[in-house]
């Protein structure tokens, strides 16, 4: 019988966010405030991946990630898959989808943007998802590469 070794231990009930772009798992932890989660959260960084080369993975015990939450993490895991686990079995599986508008989580890198001076929920339009994601601030209208974004807000 083939023996599989799991790099990250299995969970009984919860959610596995797989195929996260390498280096982004901790941003998702902050975004979903998983550090405050009362049950086990396992994070794997730079795991080998057939499709991505290397990937990150997060396993959250005792939490079923909603599709809305999955969409919010999509900018860090554009090819991400979400597996809902019940009694060690995958009962639901879906892909993350990049929303056309990302609200709240991005801090606008433009220091002269009004959002950096008044308490405003930021809004960014997503432009193009093939390879290079660009984000346009709803307020100052500047267009940024994802790598230009220096700071994210959590909940």
């Amino acid at each position: 019988m083939e023996q599989k070794t799991l790099s990250v231990s299995a969970i009984k009930d919860g959610t596995v966010i797989d195929h996260i772009s390498a280096g982004h798992a901790l941003k998702i932890v902050r975004l979903l405030d998983l550090a405050s989660h009362k049950q086990v959260v396992t994070i794997g960084l730079n795991l080998p991946s057939g499709s991505l080369g290397v990937k990150d993975i997060i396993k959250v015990a005792g939490k079923e990630l909603s599709e809305e939450e999955a969409d919010r993490v999509a900018m860090f895991a554009p090819q991400g898959t979400v597996n809902i686990i019940k009694d060690f079995q995958v009962v639901k599986k879906f892909n993350t989808r990049l929303p056309s508008l990302i609200t709240h989580i991005i801090v606008c890198p433009n220091p002269k943007c009004i959002t950096n001076h008044e308490a405003i929920e930021t809004k960014f339009k997503t432009i193009g998802n093939n390879g290079q994601l660009k984000l346009q601030c709803h307020y100052c209208e500047k267009i940024f590469l994802q790598s230009d974004i220096l700071e994210y807000k959590n909940n």
């Binding site: 002269k112 009004i114 959002t115 001076h117 008044e118 601030c137 709803h138 307020y139 100052c140 209208e141």
Partner: peptide, 10 residues
């Protein structure tokens, strides 16, 4: 008119 960018949208 406002010195901050995005002020009018806001």
């Amino acid at each position: 008119r406002h010195p901050l960018e995005g002020a009018a949208r806001r």
